[in-house]
Amino acid sequence: MLRASLLIALGWVLAAGIAGLGHAFGLTLALPATSVILVCHLAFERERGVPAALAMAIILGYLEDLHQGMPTGVLALAYALVFLALRWLGARLAVAGQLVRGLTALIACAAADLLTWAILAALSGPLEISRDALAGGLRMIHWHALATMLAAPAVWGMIARLDALITRMGGVGARSATPPKPQLTWKRP
């Protein structure tokens, strides 16, 4: 529970921090989706059960919704779906090394953006969003994904440090020394 809370706190701080940094330095470039990287981490770690990790992904999406000024639930749903897809892939693919992690973040970000676009496009009428404006956002997806890929090693490094800190503290929810029980649902068929 402690680890989950700290991960969400990290995601929140990163989401707020990236926005703050973007504002402080007047960045006009696409900013990385740090929460997507955390969602990737949740999807590929095998220690947490799917419902718990999914709940964390939804919380991260919800926080991002509020920070980005999106209609509440858009990114929460998108992140939830991306998490499920990545979790399914995680049972079949091994993600190791900075480059592969970066590429995973890139794909996850692109997928999350596409899903977001699809959700917004579907709800463009009730949400009073112009479809042309959505099409313009679609052209920025690759830059957003690239920025996320570049930021991925740093965020993964922070997660690793957080894990090490929790392990040192030996608190409740710290990473167990014993290997986790196999998740039958996500076992390779």
């Binding site: 059960g49 799917v50 999914l54 709940a55 939804i58 919800y62 919704d65 509440t72 858009v74 499920l84």
Partner: peptide, 25 residues
């Protein structure tokens, strides 16, 4: 256990959908 997880996942997915529905309204 699998069935329970599946139920939880569906339940959890319902949360953003509900949030979206609320936002759409």
């Amino acid at each position: 256990r699998t069935l329970r997880d599946l139920g939880l996942v569906i339940l959890l997915l319902g949360i953003p959908v509900l949030l979206l529905r609320s936002a759409a309204q």
